[in-house]
Write a protein that binds this DNA or RNA. Structure first.
Lengths: 245, 245
DNA sequence: CGTTTGGTTGAAATGTGTCAAACTTTGTGG
DNA sequence: CCACAAAGTTTGACACATTTCAACCAAACG
């Protein structure tokens, strides 16, 4: 909990396995260029071939892509401690963009540094690979959500996911957490229009499942919200769910 | 081209980088239990905690998940040379199922064997990580497809993708390849009903973009199909698109 | 304090789902 | 190899979730 304040990345890895002293030190010494970024700024853009990847230290970000007719699909939301473009160490060209949602503090780490870290500390390498696999699991779940659930359930599912992920890194008190996304962004993540996102949110509020004001989400009826969104947290592969070795 | 017949996995890796003699030998010697599987059989199921992963040697397979009301979302299609459940080496519990579409020949390789392979031959390890990242890129693209394009465009996009992937491993002649999926499966992949999948397919055929009979797909107008599906193959990260080192 | 951004509302248009039936192809056991 | 069952495809009419468009309101902000 303390570490999530001081260094969210270490906290994240330590939620997976216990770092050896040497590993922990390597992470602390990790050379990175820390930088503040205003809200709604692209960090990397589709088509770029970045030579470093970014560690989100503070703030919210999202990955997205835009279709020909100008509509946008948000592919994922990101919270502190995550490396949203880690895949770029093995995939040269960005096939989507990464953007801040709130003002953020990000650390840029060169690909060479990351590769070196993975080589020297294979357990960290495995953990990073694992992170990208969980990313993939979340993408799959979003596909199910968008493809097979109707808007009301989709929204509930997403709210459950965000609450669960925030709680997992100590950023939720009880059933309350920050959720600084607009209804437009919510719609873009769920594959619906702003207008419909608005109507669906109103319904969820009317059904007393959540309250969402001033960028703060409070889940009033966790079981009800889970049920409505068919939320099963297995796909997030949290805590205890790890291979033996 | 020859290798895709003899050992599609080696062919796949060789499309990414040139294997050293030792690496190649290690792959040939890879202990695996080869097994035939009938069509429409689950290979691993949601909730399982497999101790090995499977290499698809012959046939088509798909990953899928089922919602509460019984509808199914297909998450990906798989062709020979792929390891559809490679993620299980780092994610203990399966969050979706893997099923054959046609009769298949699969090779089961224990997680320990794969981990050992990655440890001994880091370049192979990187290549496997990379494969799972491309998986993720395809999931993202499907999200965009399902979330932001209408059914007609979705279908075109998927057909472009399958043709491109088949061609990449030498399984397409010209603009013709095998595509042994039913309209039900197509619908489940696109997030629409069978009925609608059928109507959309008819339209695409009427527009002379494709012919699809007897499990064989022929693209009659590649540029037209690409345009209709807004297909940009970048996200497949084929051939030349690799990091320098 | 005005301007921008985000939220809310209503009515009409439309893409896709649902249901139910018929038709066609494929596969299989006798 | 036929006969029959099962699986897959096609069709029509109707229902409904979601989009579109257009306006208005509220909150945030410099």
């Amino acid at each position: 909990m303390h570490h999530s304040q001081s260094h969210p990345f270490i906290a994240k890895l330590e939620s997976i396995f216990t770092l050896a002293g040497e590993e922990r030190q390597a992470l602390i010494d990790l050379p990175m260029q820390v930088q503040g970024v205003r809200a709604d700024q692209d960090i990397v853009r589709e088509g770029d071939c970045p030579s470093r990847c970014c560690l989100l230290l503070e703030g919210f970000a999202c990955r997205y892509s835009t279709t020909h007719n100008g509509t946008r699909q948000i592919l994922s939301f990101h919270i502190p401690g995550e490396m949203p473009d880690l895949q770029s160490i093995h995939l040269k060209t960005m096939d989507h963009s990464l953007q801040t949602i709130t003002p953020c503090k990000v650390g840029f780490i060169t690909h060479e540094t990351v590769r070196d870290l993975c080589r020297r500390y294979p357990r960290i390498g495995s953990a990073l690979w694992r992170e990208t696999l969980i990313d993939g699991a979340i993408f799959r779940e979003w596909m199910i959500n968008i493809g097979r659930r109707e808007a009301y359930a989709r929204a509930c599912h997403l709210l459950c996911e965000m609450m669960t992920r925030m709680r997992a890194v100590g950023l939720a008190e009880d059933h309350t957490c920050e959720l600084p996304i607009t209804q437009g962004e919510l719609g873009d993540a769920l594959g619906i229009t702003v207008v419909h996102a608005n109507r669906v949110l109103q319904e969820i509020r009317k059904d007393k499942l959540i309250s969402l004001t001033k960028k703060t989400l409070t889940v009033l009826d966790w079981e009800g919200l889970k049920r409505a969104g068919e939320f099963e947290p297995t796909y997030l592969h949290l805590e205890s769910d790890r291979p033996a070795a």
